[in-house]
């Protein structure tokens, strides 16, 4: 398992091309390309729904004031 994780991270690092310069970030600067921002309030609302209906939570972020629904 640990080997697989290391291999995955190395492959991921290898996928990165030459550093993108500030003047090349027109596409990346769009709101729909920003993790955590692209979907607006949907992420938090979805996390709340699925936290209430499933046995899992977390990963995307944490902290935010709960409910006792699980």
């Amino acid at each position: 398992m640990r080997t697989a994780v290391v291999v995955f991270l190395v492959l991921l690092a290898g996928c990165q091309q030459a550093p993108v310069k500030p003047w090349e970030r027109d596409i990346l600067a769009r709101e729909d390309m920003i993790p955590g921002e692209a979907e607006g309030l949907d992420d938090a609302l979805d996390d709340h729904i699925y936290f209430s209906k499933e046995g899992s939570s977390g990963g995307r972020g944490f902290g935010g004031g709960g409910c006792g629904c699980n």
């Binding site: 993790p35 955590g36 992420d43 938090a44 996390d47 709340h48 729904i49 936290f51 209430s52 209906k53 939570s57 977390g58 990963g59 995307r60 972020g61 944490f62 902290g63 935010g64 004031g65 709960g66 409910c67 006792g68 629904c69 699980n70």
Partner: peptide, 21 residues
């Protein structure tokens, strides 16, 4: 929002630090 009836483990919106990320 509470979609199921009450407690056990806590709820986190994954919002605060999500916003920070």
């Amino acid at each position: 929002m509470q979609l199921k009836k009450k407690p056990a483990s806590a709820r986190r919106d994954a919002i605060s630090v999500g916003s920070a990320l």
